[in-house]
Amino acid sequence: MKHATRRTVGLALTAFTGLCAFVIVAVLALILADILEGGAAGVTWTFLTQPPSDGMMGGGIFPAIFGTAALTLLMTVAVMPVGVLTAVYLHEYAPPDSLFARWVRVAVVNLAGVPSIVFGLFGLGFFILFVGRGMDRVFGHEEMYWAQPGILWASLTLAVLTLPVVIVSTEEALRAVPLDHRTASLALGATQSQTLARVVLPGALPGILTGAVLAISRGAGEVAPILFTGAAYFLPELPTHLNSQFMHLGYHTYVMATQSPDVEATRPLLYATVLVLLLLTFALNLVAVIIRTRTRRKAAGAH
């Protein structure tokens, strides 16, 4: 082939890869533009602070916002200690070539790949029907108290789902803490746990926060795992107990989009709900991306 032809073909194909990248970005932009356009007008103070009214045709989504926040808060409280300590084990405590550590890694990778709907089944089968029933028996509840869908079970299900996110981010953060700092601390007569608490974890804090934020963003958007573990469509009162059902932005979106008797009438409310959900997850993601880019740059500068 002549050189000029080769160059032209090459350029054309290069341009094609560029086009692929562009399409991805364009689709993202399209989604955002559509939701912004459809929802911006609907996101008002009333919408954010009032419960739904008129059979979902009016009012706001405050209970859904509150439910989502409470759910992810509980989830974060459950997942962070376990996730961070697992990463600490893998990176700081596990002996090299530890078979157990390898198994943990394999489990974490596979846990990340389990479909979210299967987590829903797990939450129902394990937390509600096994743990919940067991607790009712132990505490002598005559009628179902724990053995029913509720915010605690939904948040624990999500905690299991987001565990890999936290572990992976924390481990990356631990890797970024220079070995020198650990050596220096140990040489000064600090124990391993003192080194961990005073040098390693503070150094890894930005990365750990990134993990938390990513987990929250992921957990806030997942609907499939909470379908049978606690989400309710319409529930004007806020969840007050750990076994209360709750409203949720994602679930609300799903039900309004698929089961509304009058799609046209609810469309503005639906768009506004999606916009709120999207803004929430994007804001969280953006925070995570910013922290991470900054720490990566810092880590790169330190070496």
């Binding site: 991805i24 970005v25 958007g221 609907v223 698929t258 959900l277």
Partner: peptide
Amino acid sequence: LLKPVIELLAGIPSVVLGFFALMV
């Protein structure tokens, strides 16, 4: 620029993508 954009796309909850597929 591309990498964070992809991360944002990955961050969209699937229910929102389902909504977009359904409505648009």
